[in-house]
Design a protein around this nucleic acid. Structure first.
Lengths: 234, 234
DNA sequence: CAGGAAATTGACGATTTTGTGACAGGTCAC
DNA sequence: GTGACCTGTCACAAAATCGTCAATTTCCTG
């Protein structure tokens, strides 16, 4: 959903306007005023998407697009080009150059956001959709259902993701920091204790269906999901 | 990956050439030499994809595209347009009209096949004409009718397509974005919340005939049609 | 066994997501 | 035209979920 976007636009007012709108939509925006700067930033930061004005001082947008498509590392980064009404040959050239979409100025912020979303959606890799079964517990990402045997288990979104991660990485201890990275996303700023609370909620949801010791606490390290019972001392 | 493809092309030699190549790639090809014929065939056969030459005698390709997009039954059928080099304004107009892709003559057979594959991949298999029955609810695409047992259910076109898609892909959770792609078509830009509204209308239409929990909300993910209850009461 | 760090727990306000009713345009058959 | 749909969007209401805190409890260490 949120993405790193490089905005290449020489007109400061328009740049500001677009950046503000994208920011409001939850995207992280990096700006460049000319193609050379843009090229450098792309190499360094590898953004998720490039918003490229066609009319630029110095190197043209079309040339930048060509170079990005020529470089192995930047080849797959989606490009949406911004064109003024009437520059039809540019649009076509841009699409032939490998732009993924174009949008004609003036455009509504909403349309821009929608197009970005659509392009990103097409590129997004399909998440693992395979059902996971482990010790009588089954979780199916496709149907978004969890069941202990026959009995369904109701979970909130975060609990669901947490359980999904734990079930796909069982028998292993995960620190709170790791869980925050994997389940919440590494850009989120939340307390580590929050993990505890969600683990507790998960346990509470699993307990009435007879899966008590499934999630084990490893004092000082983190949590572990294990089909094996937590051993005292062997 | 075999698909039913309608080829609209007035030049017999080119028509033959393309048809041969597509046939070799495992596709089933139906041909039309003009837009009027094409329109009729689309209505009858509902192909998986339309390959549309832009330069046609009589009704232009662009007009045909517009009509296909206007009819709710054919709205989501992907269109790839064939253009001659230099017809730049046509390409732009075509994409604005809702074509999914374009390809410039002359093109290599391999490129054509690749583009077709790409466009088809973006879309789940086109729903069939077969009636669907699920949990006492029956939907017949041919007659455009929905009934709960004996009682008929009245739906608007969008609601119908939405229900049709959900019934042909039951149990699975669909995000709003996916539903927009599949039901509205991925060239349409509408708010995601629009899906909510239509789901609500669909629920409202289904409720008086005793199909309450059929469409379930999966918080944070989307919607799911399921014969099974969302949660098991104690 | 005491001290203290680490983890559990219950509560709660804030935030996010979804449900709902209303409405302004647009289309189409008449 | 014109009246009966249909649609997409909005604003607001209702729900569900989230993150945090402080009070406890648990568990190790010495």
């Amino acid at each position: 959903m949120a993405a790193n976007i490089l905005l290449v636009e020489d007109e400061p007012a328009i740049q500001e306007l677009i950046a503000a709108n994208l920011g409001r939509a939850g995207h992280h925006v990096v700006r460049a005023g000319d193609a050379e700067t843009a090229q450098r930033i792309v190499r360094e930061a590898l953004p998720d998407l490039v918003l490229l004005d066609w009319m630029l001082p110095g190197m043209s947008g079309i040339e930048l697009a060509r170079r990005l498509r020529a470089d192995e590392r930047t080849r797959t980064i989606p490009i949406i080009m911004l064109t003024a009404r009437g520059e039809e040959q540019d649009k076509v050239a841009g699409l032939e150059m490998g732009a993924d979409d174009y949008i004609t100025k003036p455009f509504s912020p909403r349309e821009l956001v929608a197009r970005i979303k659509a392009v990103l959606r097409r590129r997004a890799p399909q998440a693992t959709e395979d059902p996971v079964v482990l010790g009588g517990l089954s979780l199916d990402p496709a149907t978004h259902r969890v069941a202990a045997g026959e009995r369904p288990v109701t979970l909130g979104p975060t609990e669901f993701r947490l359980l999904h991660f734990l079930m796909t990485h069982p028998e292993r201890v995960h620190s709170r920091a790791q869980l925050l990275d994997q389940v919440w996303g590494d850009h989120v700023f939340v307390e580590e204790r929050t993990v505890d609370v969600h683990v507790r909620r998960l346990r509470a949801a699993l307990e009435p269906v007879g899966h008590d010791g499934l999630i084990q606490t490893v004092r000082g390290s983190g949590y572990r999901l294990s089909a094996q019972p937590a051993v005292a001392g062997v």
